Structure formats: structure tokens, C-alpha cells
Simulated assay, not measured.
Amino acid sequence: MNNFTFHNPVRVYFGDDKLQELPDLVKEFGSKVLLVYGKSSIKRMGLYDKVVDLLQSNNIDIVELSGIDPNPRIESVREGGELCKKHDIDLVLAVGGGSVIDAAKGIASAALYDGDPWDFYSYKVQSEGALPIGTILTLSATGSEMNRGSVVTNLKTKQKHGWGSPYTYPKFSILDPRNTFTVNQHQTGCGIVDSLTHVYEFYFSKNDNYLNNRICEAIMKTVIHYGPQAIDNPENYEARANLMFGSTLALNGLTGFSNTWDGFNHTTEHVLSAYYDIAHADGLAILGPHWMNYILDESNVQKFKEFAINVWEVEDRGTDMEIAKRGIQAVFDFYQSIHMPTQLSNVNIDDKEFDEIASYATRYGESVGRFKELSKDDVLQILINAK
């Protein structure tokens, strides 16, 4: 096991009716919040009214920023930062899924920065502070409720970058599975794929270890077991609860405490969705199994065999390569069973921008990915295979 430092300061309040703790949590930091949310879903489900009533009845002032996009835009971060400065906001409260929470992290940092917040996401500067952040999760997917990461899109420059700092960990996150009951089939599927991909990118590691692998496998098996149940019965509390905390654990540092992050899937998908504005997990569902097929060889077949048997319960018969390939096929089959795309043509992407996408995916060096380093030509071939 490699040396590591593990720290996660986020307080998680998990379960039914934990929302009632919101006023006391907010008052630890002040009495004026910027309420950040998406377009209409939290109003349709009644959560918006509950949050506003709780805050107002406890003399907490609210400034609102709505309309956060599924791939949050830098324009929203800029607007939110200015609202924080104008209204002397004490805490940024994100109510929604990962996109809303990601935007809130950028906003909280922009509130204490005099320049353009895109400077953070283009890696020109590091944040020297941020307003406190609280979250109320409504979508099990990104794990942003318990990590410091934030991904924001700049459509003008066709860039989608991830960034975070020690200051962008939420101070608290309220996770009530009932707040995910109204999530539709596609968004539930997106959350399943995003959670699994987060784990893949630590599970497939050159320097893996036994404990890390078993933690990763437990999370993946839980998501695979409960995901279809949540799709078939959206108000199945046990399924939604396991998906919710499974997605949180997938990217709160627990799965990667000693392993390296591979990075191919998220790095390449961020380029895809910056160019085409597709759902993040649609891109991950397409890239993931094609990446597995492409990198599988004799040097890593044992890892893929382990994945096939321990995660997908593939029968241990035949050669190692045959078992590994059946495991990868299980990924394709599972994604199709939950109605997620597995080809770029499924989301109306053709090969016109493939060369440019492959170039940008490898922009930080000659390759992308750590489990198996992939050149621009490798990335291009994976895109062609996924066409």
C-alpha cells in the first residue's frame, strides 16, 4: 500500500427528514444565503418551498440564483459571485445535483476573488478562500456533495475543466433519499454510470492494493444491484438510499486513498461535452466500455478477470482473456439495460471533430490515462470504435 494523506471535512446528514436541521446548520455561518438551483425540478417536487419556508421562518435572508445548466456555465459562476459580493452573502446553499453543487463551489470562490473565476478553471490562479458552502442533494451521481471538485463549461472556448481547492469542500451536505424519488429514468441511469465510472478510474490502477479493490468492488456491486430497482420503482427508498450514498462514497476520496486516478474517461468526456453539450454520463457510458475493450491485453488481463468475476459475477470458466471479455460485455449489456447510450451515434455525434477532440484530450502531454497510457492516436481509435 502506498503512502497517502486522507482528509474529508464534509459533515453528511443522511436520511429521511434531515432537512429540518438546515436552519441550525446555516446559522453556524451567518444569516444570509445565496440559494443556487437549476430550472424547475426542485419547485415541481416541492423541495423549493420547504427550503424557503425553513430559512425564512428562522430569519435567514435569501438571495436566489436559478437556472444552473446540467453542464454548468462559467457565466452562472460569474453572476453568482457578483451576487455574493453585492448582498454580503454568508453561505452559498446549493439545492440540486452535481451541476448545481459544482457551480456553487465556483461561485463561493468567485465571491472572494477580484478577477474572472474562469482563472480558476483555466489553472491560472488558485483560490485563496471561498465562502462556506452547503448542499441539499437531489441527484445521486457526481459525489460533489462530499468532495472539493467542480467542473464548469466555457462554451465560447469549447472548454470544460475540473478544478477544486481545499476551500471548496462543502461545510455540510443533507442527503435525503426521498429527494431523489422524482428523478426520471434517464437521469437515474446517468447517475449510475457516473458513479461506476468514478470507481473504474481508481479501480483500474497500476498501483492497486487489496483493500482499495474490495472497497471499489463493494460500491460497484451496490450501484449495479440497486440501480435497476430505482429505475423500475422510483420510490423504492432502500434502492434510492443505497444509490445516494454509493455515489457519494465513489468520489469522496475513499476509493482512491492509495490508488492512482486513471483519468481517460473523464478527461476525454469533458472534451466531448464541451463540444457537443451532451449529458456528462451519456458520454461516460459510451466511452467506458470501448476504453476497456481497447486497453485489454495480456499485461492487464488479470485485473479485468478480477473485475468480471468479483463485480459482474461472470462464471470462472474458459481462458483469462475470455473471462475478461465477458466482463466487459457485461458493462455494455448493463448500460443498454438501463437505457444508456453505448455508441456516439446514439447521441448524434459523428466523426467530424474526432481529431480535434483527441488532440485536446492529450493536451497535457503525449498521453492520457495512467492504467494504460494512451496517445492521441489511441484516443482517436477509441472514438472511431465508439462511433
Rank of each mutant, 00 (worst) to 15 (best):
M1Q: 13
N2L: 13
N8P: 05
R11S: 13
V12I: 15
V12Q: 10
V26N: 07
V33L: 09
V33N: 04
L35D: 02
S41G: 12
I42H: 05
R44K: 15
Y48M: 08
V52S: 06
D61N: 11
L65W: 07
R73E: 14
G81F: 06
H87E: 11
H87S: 08
L112F: 11
D114Y: 09
W118S: 04
A130H: 12
A130S: 14
L131K: 08
L137P: 00
G143F: 03
S144D: 13
N154K: 12
H161E: 14
L175N: 00
L175I: 12
D176M: 10
F181H: 00
T182K: 08
H186A: 01
G191S: 11
G191D: 04
V193L: 04
V193Q: 02
D194A: 07
Y203L: 08
Y203F: 14
K206I: 08
L211E: 05
C216Y: 01
K221D: 06
V223H: 01
V223I: 15
N236L: 07
Y237N: 01
A241E: 08
L243A: 04
S247I: 03
T248K: 09
G253T: 09
L254P: 00
T255V: 15
G256D: 09
F264H: 09
V271K: 06
V271A: 03
Y275Q: 10
M292H: 07
N293W: 00
I295K: 02
D297V: 10
D297Q: 13
E298P: 04
K303F: 06
E306T: 06
E313V: 06
E315M: 07
G318T: 03
T319I: 02
T319A: 03
E322N: 01
I323S: 00
F332G: 05
F334I: 04
V347D: 02
K352V: 14
F354Y: 13
S359N: 08
G365F: 08
V368Y: 03
F371W: 05
E373D: 05
I382R: 06
